[in-house]
Write a protein that binds this DNA or RNA. Structure first.
Length: 735
DNA sequence: CGTAGTTTTGTTTTT
DNA sequence: CAAAACTACG
């Protein structure tokens, strides 16, 4: 009896094929983490590979943590020597040792998206770009995409063809310069710089080639070009590369993930050994059949079909509502009822949706029904203002070149140092080749500053003293000193804002985290703490000590499983998103379909899809047809009845032949048909007419725009002023 | 310099 | 409908 007896035939093959390139195509719920963990154990116990020579890379900290735990359990002695980490954590660890070879200090700071945006604002100022012509976000998006493709600022400049691209190239250059001046890396740099390091310093790479003789990569379908290249380099010498993934679960194309990395693995490594894991240990056959019949409509995929020996189970449920409000009400109610009946526990329930914006209504109803829940995503703990402020102080102390943090908190709490003064110091620093902080230290020599100079120097002095004392009083001492000397909490205590109390609590929560960290990692220090904070994601923070239902996007749910799953907002225009429908390229729609596949396969026993005929979006009411993905599920698998409910759309749903729907391409224009409300051919009023609205009273029509769906009417109301509304809902009457 | 009040703008998805 | 960005005033 060995630990490998519990594996099925394919799993065993995957575990025992240890040499050379291996591709494991692991369907949802097919036990891929189990396979990886057993493979690590097999390498160590049966093949005598030193744990030190094994590397396992994941995408999320949660996945890494889970694998770490299971490896520790299964392997026992030496397990801690196995390197299990995320892509980003792996690269940061490597860079902390060697990045000086690329001209950065090894105590570099990691910038999050917020920091990058602030930095880009500075870039716009420096090179004179009006943010009305070009948005920071757009430019950052282009730069990020370039970095994912390993295109640096110089190469980008060379290939920039039109004017806009040239401007972006200029931004990219300045942005990288500012990053370097601040000794900071953004998220994409972490991977990019590691690849650069390996390419420019073969001796460093060789060192890691020797170390990592056996490499395993989880969620391989989500790798982008930079990550692909990183893995290729790491594995190039011994070629013992085992990648695990599921092309049907590739849902991060928008972040640069290249599905071809997994589809073409066998071409890139022509001696690759491939195993398919198709037996699912998670869901009932009905749920799998539904998922299979949806994903079957995708073109770009490797053929496979999940099966289960768990039996067919219950039917999937489909529930329709007039409004998103009723939808949320039903879901909350249904969970509450099921828990009351003892059918499930809160922690076995999850509500999934396409966009974070949908969480609000659900949350409201969960509160109303007293259901304990956790919202994953939305505002991350570390994204709260007060936490970011505290972190800015910490980061400022940690990295003297990080001007961004200095600017963030120089007037938080209020010290009477306004924007004008900050601009003057920035200007002075720029002209004299100083960092912003250095300029602050010598503020008295900036003539135009006047009374503010004294205040600025006092601030600089405070930070200097803190920096000098970190070594003496440790992290806990530092954070308390910051709270004390800045008077941040004091200001909150005296404030009469209603969320002041929460914020103070959050700050003390951060103090707790710091104390915890210091106890667990006594040698890591401030940089270590900040690094950990920079690399955590939303999903990592889930506290599963309490039984709580989870609300999250489908993206966030990848890799998780629940007894009961609710998929909310199953509407064409919401899921699949409007953009993916309108887009010419059907690869967008295929990505959405994979998302649907991920959503459905999260469920073990019960799956409920809900649909709201109309919902509020961006202050406008939207009417949407039932999601095309639901129509791809054979109707025998779905229980589609709800006693006492209206059946109008039910019939519509059932009457559409399955085949026709899955093959037919429904163009967005066609979608507006059959929606129940038709656009009026002609309105009985025109520009300049006086009209009456039920709520706003009488006004003058300023403009009428002919949209695809409806006429967009602008009216200047006598009482309330200008309003833009759709003719079909506004029901305006000529007077 | 700080604020309150006003206008504008935006939505996928996130390591 | 919010949040963010702007504007005008004390």
């Amino acid at each position: 009896m060995s630990i490998y007896d519990s594996l099925n035939k394919e799993q065993k093959e995957a575990v025992m094929h240890t040499e050379g390139p291996v591709l494991i195509l692991a369907g949802a719920g097919s036990g891929k983490t189990r396979v990886l963990v057993h493979r690590i154990a097999y390498l160590i116990d049966e093949k005598g590979v030193p744990p030190y020579n094994i590397l396992a890379i994941t995408f999320t900290n949660k996945a890494a943590g889970e694998m770490r735990e299971r490896v520790d359990k299964l392997v026992g002695f030496g397990a801690d020597q196995v390197w299990v980490a995320t892509f980003h954590a792996t690269c940061v660890r490597i860079l902390r040792r060697h990045i000086d070879l690329l001209g950065y200090d090894t105590n570099f700071t990691i910038y999050d998206t917020d920091d990058s945006k602030s930095l880009m604002k500075q870039v716009f100022k420096n090179i004179g770009i009006d943010n009305k012509q070009l948005r920071e976000k757009t430019v950052l998006g282009v730069i990020s995409a370039a970095k994912d493709e390993l295109i640096d600022e110089n190469e980008f400049e060379k290939t920039a063809s039109d004017y806009v691209e040239q401007r972006i190239a200029a931004c990219y250059k300045e942005y990288q310069k500012l990053l370097r001046d601040s000794n900071a890396l953004d998220f994409d740099d972490i991977i990019f710089k590691t690849v650069t390091l390996f390419k420019t310093h073969p001796e460093v790479l060789d060192n890691y080639n020797e170390r990592f003789r056996y490499i395993m990569v989880d969620e391989y379908q989500d790798t982008n070009t930079a990550q692909f290249e990183l893995v290729r380099l790491l594995a190039q010498k011994y070629r013992n590369l085992c990648v695990v993934g599921d092309d049907d679960q590739s849902i991060y194309k928008f972040r640069g993930a290249n599905i071809r990395n997994i589809l073409d693995f066998e071409e890139n490594y022509d001696d690759a050994f491939t195993v398919k894991l198709e037996q699912n240990y998670r869901s009932t056959q009905n749920i799998l059949d539904a998922a299979n019949s949806v994903i079957r409509n995708n073109y770009a995929r490797k053929d496979k079909a999940l099966w289960s020996d768990r039996g067919s189970g219950k039917l999937l449920h489909f529930r329709q509502f007039d409004t998103a409000y009723e939808e949320a009400e039903y879901i909350a109610d249904d969970i509450a009822k099921a828990v009351k009946k003892g059918e499930t526990t809160y922690s076995e329930c999850a509500v999934l949706y396409r966009t974070n914006a949908q969480s609000r209504l659900l949350e409201e109803h969960f509160v109303k029904n007293g259901i304990p829940y956790n919202l994953v995503g939305g505002v991350n703990f570390y994204d709260r203002k007060e936490i970011k402020d505290m972190l800015a102080y910490l980061r400022m102390v940690d990295n003297a070149k990080d001007d961004l943090q200095v600017k963030r908190v120089i007037n938080v709490p209020k010290r009477g140092i306004g924007q004008t003064s900050v601009d003057k110091v920035t200007d002075y620093a720029y002209r004299n080749g100083l960092t912003f902080f250095e300029a602050c230290e010598t503020a008295d020599s900036i003539p135009t500053l006047g009374a503010a100079a004294k205040k600025i120097m006092a601030f600089a002095n405070m930070i200097r003293v803190m920096r000098a004392s970190v070594g003496d009083y440790g992290l806990n001492g530092l954070i308390n000193d910051i709270i004390d000397k800045t008077g941040y909490v004091k200001e909150l205590e005296e404030s009469d804002e209603d969320d002041a109390k929460d914020r103070i609590e959050n700050i003390y929560e951060l103090v707790n985290k710091i104390v915890d960290y210091e106890e667990n990692e006594p040698d890591a220090g401030l940089s270590g703490f900040l690094e950990e904070v920079a690399l955590v994601s939303d999903i990592d923070g889930i506290d599963d000590s309490m039984p709580r239902a989870l609300l999250m996007t489908i993206h966030a749910a990848k890799g998780l499983e629940f007894e009961r799953v609710y998929l909310a907002g199953c509407e064409d225009g919401v899921f699949p998103s409007y953009l993916s429908i309108a887009c010419e390229d059907d690869s967008e729609l295929e990505e959405e379909r994979r998302l649907a596949y991920v959503g459905i396969t999260r469920a073990k026993d019960e799956f409920t899809a809900t649909y709201a005929r109309c919902r509020m979006n961006r202050g406008e009411i939207q009417y949407n047809p039932v999601s095309r993905f639901l129509k791809e599920i054979p109707k025998e698998l779905i229980d589609n009845r709800l006693p006492g409910e209206r059946r109008q759309w039910t019939d519509d749903f059932a009457s559409i032949p399955q085949k026709e729907v899955s093959v037919a391409k429904v163009k967005p224009v066609a979608l507006t048909k059959g929606m129940g409300i038709k656009k009026a051919d002609k309105l009985d009023y025109t520009v300049g007419d006086r009209v009456r609205h039920v709520k706003y009273g009488v006004g003058t029509v300023l403009n009428i725009e002919d949209d695809v769906k409806d006429h967009k009417v602008t009216v200047e109301f006598d009482g309330t002023g200008k309003k833009i509304m759709y003719a079909m809902f506004a029901k305006l009457e000529k007077v």
